Amino acid sequence: MSVARMLTGDRPTGRLHLGHYVGSIANRVRLHQRYESFFIIADLHMLTTRNSREDVGRVSGNARDMVTDILSAGVDPARATFYLQSAIPEVGDLNTLLQNLVTVPRLERVPSLKDMARDAGKEEMPYGLLGYPVLQAADILCVKGRVVPVGKDNAAHVEVTREIARRFNHLYGEVFPVPELIPAETPTLVGTDGQGKMSKSRGNSILLSDDPAAVRRKVMSMYTDPNRVRADVPGTVEGNPVFAYHDVFNPDRARVDELKQRYRAGRVGDVEVKEQLVAAVNRFLDPIRERRAEIEADRGLVDQLIVDGTERTRREVHQTLVEVRRAMGLTGAYQQLRRRAERARRTAATAV
C-alpha cells in the first residue's frame, strides 16, 4: 500500500519565527515521518499581497532561507520534497480548470482573506487574493495530497479544497482524494509587543535564526503588565506575553508556576522573569542552531533540494493534469478536431 501524501508550505516572504514553529512547523516535523511529504514554496501566493519587482527579486534568497529554517527545525531532507510553485506552470493550468467549480459568494465567506488584504494595506481585495483558496486547492490536488496540516488561519481554505475535490469527482469521475485537514493543536503565539499574533511584517517576532544576543534583546524589550510600575506591585499573568512564552518554551513547569505565584504576589521583578525566559528560549533554539550550522556548512545542499524537488513535483503534476483533462473530456475534444483536420487534408490532397 502506498504512503499517503501530505502537502504543506509557506510563502517565501522572509525568515520563519517562533510563531511559525508553534502554529505549523512543530506539527510538520511530527507528521512528515508518517507521510510522503511535499513542502511548497508558495511564491505565486505571495504575489497576491507582495508583487513588486523587489518582492519577486527576493524570492530566491527567501526560499533558501525558508527551507533552511524548516530543515533546522527538524524536517529530514530525505523525507521531504521541496518545490518552487512558480516553476511548475501546470499548477496554473489546474487552477484555471478548478476555478469554475466554486462561486464568488463562497470565496467571499472565507474569513482570512479580508484579514490578509487588511494586513497588506489593500483597500480593495485583488482578484488573485479572492482566488487564493482555489490556487491553494490546485496546490493540494495537483500532487493528490491526502492530508494537509494547517494553522487556524488556513482551515477555511482547506475546506474549499475539499468542496472542489468532491465537486470535480461528482462531475467527472474519481480523480482526486478529498484531503483531510489536520489542525495545529497549539494556540496562536502573540507577538513580543503584545499586539496580535507574531508577524514578520510587524517586527514583533523572534526568528528561528536569531542568535542568543538577538533573543536577549527582543525578550528584554517584551511587553508585560502595563500597570506594574515596580517589582513589589502585584502583576497580572493572564494575557502577559512573557508568561505565554514561558508556557510554550520553558519545560520547567515547577519553575514557571513559581514565577507566576511570585509575580501575582509582587515578589519578583520583570527583569528576573525575562532573564528566565531568555534562557528557556535559547535552550529551545540551541539544537536548531546546531542543525543550521551543519546545513549551511554543506554548500549547495538547499539549492539542490529545491531544484530536485521542483523537477520531481513537476513530473507528478503533469501526470495529474493529464488525468484531469482526460476525465473532463478536454483531451478528446482536441483529438476529434485533429482527426477531422487530418481527414480534410487527405481529402484535399486526393482531390488534387
Rank of each mutant, 00 (worst) to 15 (best):
A137Y: 01
D211K: 09
L113Q: 10
H32Y: 06
D298Y: 02
D43H: 05
R312V: 04
V158Q: 01
P234D: 01
D55K: 07
R283Q: 14
L31E: 11
E54I: 15
L7G: 12
L135G: 14
K114C: 04
D115N: 07
A254D: 12
V3H: 07
G145S: 14
R106I: 07
D257N: 14
V175N: 03
L305M: 07
P12Q: 02
S2G: 06
L321M: 13
G145W: 09
S205I: 00
R217E: 10
A279L: 11
P183Y: 02
E180I: 08
V147Q: 09
A26V: 06
P179R: 06
M46P: 04
R109Q: 13
R340K: 12
G14H: 13
G9F: 03
K260G: 03
A155N: 02
E108F: 04
R230Y: 10
D43T: 10
T192H: 05
A231Q: 08
N100I: 12
D247Q: 10
G121C: 13
L44G: 01
P126M: 10
H157R: 12
N227E: 13
A351R: 15
E90W: 03
A348C: 04
G61M: 09
D270L: 11
L97C: 11
Q335G: 02
T186R: 10
L129T: 04
A156T: 08
L18N: 08
A231K: 12
R339C: 01
T320M: 05
E342N: 13
S72M: 03
V158W: 00
V268A: 07
A344Y: 12
E290Y: 09
S60F: 15
S37Y: 02
Y172W: 15
A265G: 05
Y35P: 09
P89A: 03
K144F: 05
S37A: 10
R30F: 07
T313L: 01
T331A: 10
G131F: 15
N250L: 00
T96F: 15
P105E: 11
G23S: 14
A155K: 07
L31P: 07
A120C: 14
H45P: 02
A344T: 08
